[in-house]
């Protein structure tokens, strides 16, 4: 079990297009309130499974192939904050939309942090391996159609209540599926880059011709 302790606030501000803005008192209070509600409401759950490579069920398109290039194993991961978070965000959309968007972005941060903790867990269990970053369906040309394939591989609907709908959207919404490669040889540090970033179309850096450096 993984417990989330503190959420990276500046990351949430960045998601909301406020990079570089320092929070005034009222915003600071709002972020604190939202952070404690997220931590109280989240019910983090995850599953992962080791797969030997190559595995034809996991590979589709070129980007995942280059991502897993040189890896002997892949870890298939899914993680969710649970359905209660969706409800929390839904309710605040009625009562206070400003709070809703802050909750929404902090929840996105929370699921990322959950995934990072899972990465640490995997790294601990496989000290002899180097790891790639997490690669998710929808990145580059890796098709979202793999969403249900990964979920079924992990028995996620039954075990942690994580499902995909007919358009391959994950529900509960604050959830992630991903594939991480394991290699005995050092892996050339790849940057994630804009092509594989979820933020690419609403990113203020990109709009201004800059890059976040991620």
């Amino acid at each position: 079990m993984i417990k989330l302790e503190k959420l990276n606030r500046s990351e949430a501000v960045r998601y909301l297009g406020g990079a570089g803005i320092s929070l005034n008192y009222r915003m600071d209070v709002l972020f604190s309130e939202c952070e404690s509600e997220i931590l109280k409401t989240a019910n983090p759950k995850f599953l992962y499974l080791e797969k030997s490579l190559p595995d034809s069920r996991l590979t589709a398109g070129n980007d995942i192939k280059s991502h897993l290039d040189g890896c002997e194993k892949a870890i298939v991961i899914c993680a969710t904050l649970g359905a209660e978070i969706d409800r929390l965000i839904r309710v605040s959309q009625i009562s206070d939309m400003a709070k809703a968007v802050v909750l929404d972005s902090l929840a996105s941060v929370a699921v990322e942090q959950l995934c990072s903790k899972i990465d640490e867990l995997i790294a601990e269990k496989h000290p002899e391996y180097y790891m790639t970053f997490r690669f998710s369906p929808g990145y580059g040309d890796y098709p979202v159609e793999l969403q249900p394939v990964i979920l079924n591989m992990l028995d996620a609907p039954r075990k942690i209540g994580l499902t995909a709908n007919e358009n391959y959207l994950l529900a509960p919404s604050k959830s992630v599926t991903a594939v991480t490669g394991l290699s005995k040889e050092p892996i050339a540090q790849k940057k994630r880059g804009c092509a594989v970033c979820n933020m690419r179309e609403r990113c203020k850096y990109r709009r201004n011709g800059e890059h976040c450096g991620f």
Binding site: A83, R90, T163, A164, N165, E166, N167, A171, P172
Partner: peptide, 14 residues
């Protein structure tokens, strides 16, 4: 008979 495997409204879209 088990669950259909998709989340129903309002969390999902079924």
């Amino acid at each position: 008979i088990g669950p259909i495997g998709q989340l129903m409204e309002p969390s999902g879209s079924l």
